[in-house]
């Protein structure tokens, strides 16, 4: 029978594609961090600071200050209150791992 054989052939091709795709998937932004990129651009060139490549500790400290109302804010004080330490940590870790942002001042 030729049919199963040809299917096996195709599936080998697919395996290669899938393996190549793995590193891309690992680098994909976690869903929880996706919310941030509505305002925080990957390029650090606007009035809203970029987060990519920023040290995790810096993000965690800033979020804690926003949440406690200890840092002047327009909306971040209102948004930070919706996130737990754990969630903030995960987001901060991911951004920190993204290397250097383009146009970091």
């Amino acid at each position: 029978m030729t049919r199963p054989w040809s299917y096996r052939g195709i599936s080998h091709g697919m395996i290669v594609v899938a393996l190549l795709a793995v590193p891309i998937q690992a680098a994909a932004q976690p869903s929880s961090a996706a919310a941030c990129s509505g305002c925080h651009a990957p390029v650090n060139d606007g009035p809203v600071p970029g987060l990519i490549g920023r040290p995790a500790g810096e993000i965690v400290t800033a979020m804690a200050a926003f949440r406690a109302g200890e840092r002047t804010a327009t909306v971040m004080d209102r948004i930070a209150k919706g996130y737990s330490d754990e969630e903030i940590n995960a987001i901060a870790q991911w951004y920190a791992a993204q290397g250097q942002p383009a146009g970091n001042p």
Partner: peptide, 26 residues
């Protein structure tokens, strides 16, 4: 519940201006 809400009712002009700038940036 703990999060969200609107801009403060009393705010200096600078804050309204900042929010106008952030709107454009968004």
């Amino acid at each position: 519940k703990e999060a969200g809400g609107v801009s403060p009712l009393e705010a200096p002009a600078a804050q309204r201006e900042a929010e106008a700038t952030y709107a454009q940036a968004w």
